[in-house]
């Protein structure tokens, strides 16, 4: 993996998304376009008390690296940054920050979208939500997560068109 181009950080403590964005911008000051995404813990109107995230140190970083490599192979990116929280978080706390820099906006937007879809279901993280009532549940990927990821399959658009046509 191109360590100059890709930065991956797993953090046990809260990270500051503005600081991440400012740092990323300094890294690629001459890029024409920077797209960023921030994911935060959903409060679900007070129903969620906390979210615990676990990972597999070593494998998680390696798999995120592979995902970032795929993005770099697919779009002409100048830099990619991924920061991901683990540990126990409260609603409103940042979970994930993704940034991509390119000469033009489209590759930057698409790469961030792709990276998020793959981080959801191809990076070794596990989430457990504790409700305000004390109940706890493991969060499994939803059907829409795999549908989102399927959009990036090589011939997804033609398959989708075929499926629609067959109906």
């Amino acid at each position: 993996m191109d360590a100059e181009k890709v930065s991956i950080r797993i953090s046990w403590t809260p990270f500051d998304p503005e600081a991440e964005a400012a740092h990323f911008r300094r890294r690629c000051a001459r890029a024409g376009a920077i797209a960023t995404f921030l994911g935060q813990v959903r409060g679900e109107n007070g129903a969620v008390a906390s979210l615990a995230l676990e990972h597999y140190p070593g494998l998680t970083e390696a798999e995120i690296g592979r995902i970032a490599e795929q993005a770099c192979a697919r779009w002409p990116l100048e830099a990619v940054a991924i920061a991901h929280r683990v540990g126990v978080m409260a609603p409103g706390e940042p979970i994930v920050f993704v940034a991509a820099a390119a000469a033009h906006r489209r590759p930057a937007f698409e790469a961030v979208d792709f990276l998020m879809d793959y981080l959801k279901s191809e990076a070794p993280f596990w989430k457990k939500e504790t409700g305000a009532d004390g109940s706890a549940r493991w969060i499994e990927p939803r059907a829409e997560d795999s549908r989102d990821k399927a959009r990036w399959a090589p011939d997804a658009s033609s398959q989708g068109a075929q499926r629609a046509w067959r109906k």
Binding site: L53, L59, E63, M116, A123, P124
Partner: peptide, 25 residues
């Protein structure tokens, strides 16, 4: 630390991990 099939060899392995569906992001 490499994702493998269930019928791949285990000879010499030091660490085996069982991982339910991932849920990151």
């Amino acid at each position: 630390q490499a994702i493998v099939e269930r019928d791949s060899p285990l000879a010499g392995a030091r660490e085996v991990a069982f991982m339910p569906p991932f849920s990151g992001g």
